[in-house]
Structure formats: structure tokens, C-alpha cells
Design a protein around this nucleic acid. Structure first.
Lengths: 112, 112
DNA sequence: TATTTCTCCTAGACATTCTACCTATACGGC
DNA sequence: GCCGTATAGGTAGAATGTCTAGGAGAAATA
């Protein structure tokens, strides 16, 4: 599918997307990007150069915890899961997203 | 109202918001920020340090045209209006926003 | 054996928004 | 007449986040 934007994501939503996907259960980084693509029906594509720095960022902030393990295919992979603080952060970001996206919708709904 | 985010806006949506507000009729910069705040019910706050560079950017890209005139209060103000290209750009950005925000909503709707 | 897929990673460029400033004029209250 | 606030324009530099473009190794597939 051809991109409509300069970027494949809305800036600022990547943390939210990652936290939400990880909340569904432990996943490794590569799996996170796949799930985001699948669930969004191929609309959202997280580039690896965005994904891994974001994961490290979230881990450093204490929202994710990581352990090395074995993937479904028997390969080494780093599995992420939500910390308690990450769960709170997710809730806050969900609320924030809802609030902001509703506000944008208000502007877009103004009759011409 | 206290901010929920580090930023008052979703990054990448400012151009869209500006184009949409200008599409309602010629406005000066200061008026644009006020309308965005009002229509969004005080949720979206465009800082002046974001607004004016954005206006110059949009003008440079040929999406807005500006003329000096007199504001409602008899002051000098720069009034912006949409060019034909700006109208096309607005349509594209509206579509893009809808597409991306729906995709994010899909992710957020995944049951826990 | 060659290629593709899976999995991790980094560096540097780029764009956008923010904070923090600056300027000037009109208006209201004192 | 003066002072503060609101209205109107602007810039510089920092902070942030995403992207492009690489690199690496191991496993599966052709």
C-alpha cells in the first residue's frame, strides 16, 4: 500500500502502540512490528530504525522489562513485557490519545 | 486545563489544523490559534513559537497565501487564505489523518 | 551454495514542536 | 497621563522522535 504521508506513523503514537501490543503478552521486538502491521491492516508500518530505539527508550524509562529467550522459531530474541509503571503509562497515553484525537476530530467536523 | 502530554498537539497534525481553519475563511495568525483552541474546547493549544513558523512553512509551500490587512480591532494583521494547492493538500491530509487515526484505534481496541 | 527470512542493532539526517525570548499597538482602569 | 493586559507579529535554539541507510549473525528455503 502506498504511503500517504512523509511518515508511516503519527509522531508521538509509537510509544502508545508498543505499550499496547506488549500489554497483550510478552513479545519480542520483531514480533511487535509485525503485530502492529497486522492489527492495523497494513496501515501502520514501524521501521526497525524507529522500533529498536523506542524499545530501549521505554525500557530505560522503566515501562518495559526485557529478557532474552527463544522465539517461536527457536531463535534468540528479546522478549518484552509491561512493568507496573508501564501499565499506568499505557493508561495515561490511551487517555491522552483519545482526548487529542477527539479534539482533532472536532476541528475536522467544522462545516465548510 | 492541565496538560496530559509533553506536547499540546499530536506531532504532525498542526499543518492539518491550520489548513482546516483557514479553509473556513480568511483569518490572521492570532485568530487561527484562538479558533483552534475554541473549536477543540480548550484541548488543543498552539504555541506562538509553533504557529508562526508553521504559517511561513505552509506559505512557502504554496498552500497558503497571505495579505496584510486590518483586523476586527483595527490593527495590522496578516490574513491567510487557502490556495488551490492548499485545498488539495488539505483534502490529502484529512484523508491521511482519518486513515492513521482509524489504524491507531484498531490497535487500541484489541481486547486485553 | 545462494538467497531470503528472522532477529538485533546504530549513526546521522530531518522535521516538528517547544520554551523563551523580542517588538509594537490598542484599550481600559486608575 | 500611565500601566497592565490583550492583540498581533516575529526569531533562535533545544528537545524530541522518526526515518533512511547501513551492519550483523543465524536459520530456513531454494
Amino acid at each position: 500500500m502506498t504511503p500517504l504521508e512523509k511518515t508511516d506513523l503519527l509522531q508521538g503514537t509509537l510509544d502508545l502502540l508498543i505499550l499496547k501490543v506488549v500489554a497483550l503478552g510478552p513479545v519480542h521486538g520483531y514480533g511487535i512490528s509485525q503485530r502492529i502491521r497486522q492489527i492495523s491492516q497494513e496501515v501502520l508500518q514501524v521501521q526497525q530504525g524507529s522500533l529498536y530505539p523506542a524499545l530501549h527508550r521505554l525500557e530505560k524509562r522503566g515501562w518495559l522489562q526485557a529478557d532474552w529467550g527463544e522465539s517461536e522459531n527457536g531463535r534468540q530474541a528479546k522478549f518484552y513485557r509491561l512493568s507496573a509503571r508501564g501499565r499506568r503509562q499505557l493508561a495515561a497515553e490511551e487517555q491522552s490519545w483519545t482526548r487529542l484525537s477527539k479534539a482533532v476530530a472536532l476541528i475536522l467536523q467544522t462545516a465548510e
